[in-house]
Amino acid sequence: MRSRTIIMPILLIILFWVLQILIFRNFAFFNMAFCYIYIGFILMLPYEIPHMLTMVIAMAFGFTIDVFYDTIGMHMAASVFIAYIRPYVINVLTPRGGYDATMEISIQSLGFQWFASYAAVLIFIHHTLLFAIEAWGLNVFFQAIGKIVLSSIFTFGVFTLLQFLLFSRKR
């Protein structure tokens, strides 16, 4: 279990970073829908990692994304925020009977319904924060709302697809 909590995040970092910077950075549908798949990394971090360390990891990871978007601080702020509220969201979503001790955040161990609501809530909060910071003080409020909704749907779709493609194991 111990080595798993160290190796898995490293593999996840590489995977999501490559996906975000080399692939999804070049996509924007209708100039409205963006895919910020990189937060999938923060969503999938093992639950055993201490809360404060999660925030530091999220901040560092947000930084590596920010330098490529020329938006220093924005992705960092949004990532730190979802890293902070993640345990509370997991608490609120506790299924009947509670979690197992060796809980792993994935569709396999927690079911599609749980996972979808978990991802949807955090992705929506992250995107709201991100576009709100970006549009700060500008007269683009309504466009920002469109971007938030469409991008959330896009990211959520890609993230769910990724779960089924890469992280599903035959039992």
């Binding site: 809360h51 404060m52 925030m55 530091v56 601080g73 960092m76 702020a77 730190v80 902070y84």
Partner: peptide, 16 residues
């Protein structure tokens, strides 16, 4: 955790 979170966000806002 909350205070630590506030500190990190303050750094982010300063950078922005």
């Amino acid at each position: 955790a909350f205070l630590f979170f506030l500190i990190l966000e303050a750094i982010c806002v300063w950078l922005i």
